[in-house]
C-alpha cells in the first residue's frame, strides 16, 4: 500500500494541528464554549493521530476497503463533519425549544401584569 509522501504527511499534520490550535484559541478567548468544542477537538486530534500512527491508518484503510490511506483520511474527515452537523442540529432543536418556552412564559407573565394594571 502506498506510503504517505513526506509532503503529504507534513501538510496533513500542519493542517490538523492548526485546526486543533485554532479551536483551542477560540475556547481560550471564550468565543466558543467548551461544551461545543469537544467534537472539533476530537476531529483534529483524530487526524493528527492517524497521520502520526501510520500503521493504524493502514489498518483502517484495509478494514473499510479504501484504495489509499489518503482516502481514509478524507473519509474520516467527512464522517466527522457529518457528526458535527448533526450535533449542531440537535443543539439548535434544543435552543428552539428553550426559546419557545421562554416566549410562552414571557407572554403569560406580561398578560398577567397587564390585567393587574388595568
Amino acid at each position: 500500500m502506498a506510503e504517505l509522501t513526506p509532503h503529504q504527511t507534513v501538510f496533513a499534520l500542519v493542517t490538523s494541528l492548526l485546526a486543533f490550535l485554532f479551536v483551542l484559541e477560540l475556547v481560550r478567548r471564550r468565543r466558543l464554549r467548551e461544551e461545543y468544542s469537544w467534537l472539533w477537538l476530537l476531529t483534529a486530534g483524530a487526524m493528527v493521530l492517524l497521520v502520526m500512527w501510520y500503521r493504524l491508518l493502514i489498518l483502517i484503510t484495509r478494514i473499510v476497503g479504501a484504495v489509499t490511506p489518503l482516502n481514509t483520511l478524507l473519509l474520516c474527515a467527512v464522517l466527522f463533519l457529518f457528526a458535527i452537523a448533526v450535533h449542531y442540529s440537535m443543539i439548535i432543536s434544543r435552543l428552539a425549544s428553550q426559546v419557545k418556552n421562554l416566549a410562552q412564559e414571557l407572554a403569560l407573565l406580561s398578560a398577567r401584569l397587564e390585567e393587574r394594571q388595568r
Binding site: 419557545k100 416566549a103 410562552q104 407572554a107 406580561s110 390585567e115
Partner: peptide
C-alpha cells in the same frame, strides 16, 4: 376576551 400575546410568531 382575555389576551396573551406571544412576542413573535411561533
Amino acid at each position: 376576551a382575555r389576551v396573551v400575546r406571544l412576542p413573535f410568531n411561533l
